[in-house]
Amino acid sequence: MTTARPLDVDLLREVEQFLFREARLADEGDYDGWEALWTDDGVYWIPANGDDVDPTTQMSILYDNRSRIALRVRQLKHDKRHSQNPKSRLRRILGNVELLDADPSEAGADGDLAVGANFIVYESRERGTTIWGGRTEYRLRRVDGAWRLARKKVMLVDNDRPLSTLAFLV
């Protein structure tokens, strides 16, 4: 029988604060601030038709490497990104934040920290109010002393059903 390792509360709070900031920047459409959170090899993925399809052979709602993240942000900043002009009014709640590595102090062989969280997003625009919910798995990395997003995988609970336009950063 193994002894439960005591929770590193400081690490958890630090990680939560980072995730809350990322969420707020996305909610408020601070695109440059949001993009600055990514590592140079970041991957942003929203699977479709389940949470574990192979994004190299199957359609995803979004599967952005770092250059495509940059392209997405440039488009969002353009005034003719009609699906986000006007911007959706957004607020989201993150919960159930969980450190997923067996030993977070090791932070994974590659130095990345695995974190999971659930979310609810309220989106309001002319179409009406849409509620988006799901679970996000992050891989976070310390770069020059600050946390950065190396990977963000957003698993919408309804990703196997018809979805409305989702042009904001979820």
Binding site: I46, A48, T56, T57, Q58, M59, S60, I61, L62, Y63, D64, R68, L71, R72, Q75, K80, R81, H82, S83, E126, R127, L163, S164, T165, L166, A167
Partner: peptide
């Protein structure tokens, strides 16, 4: 073709999100 398509189409697509905004407007 897959990577180009999934960038362009669907709810978050670079192209189709804006087409869909037009349909609804």
């Amino acid at each position: 073709m897959l990577q180009q398509t999934l960038g362009s189409v669907g709810p978050a697509g670079f192209l189709l999100a804006d087409d869909s905004e037009m349909y609804e407007r």
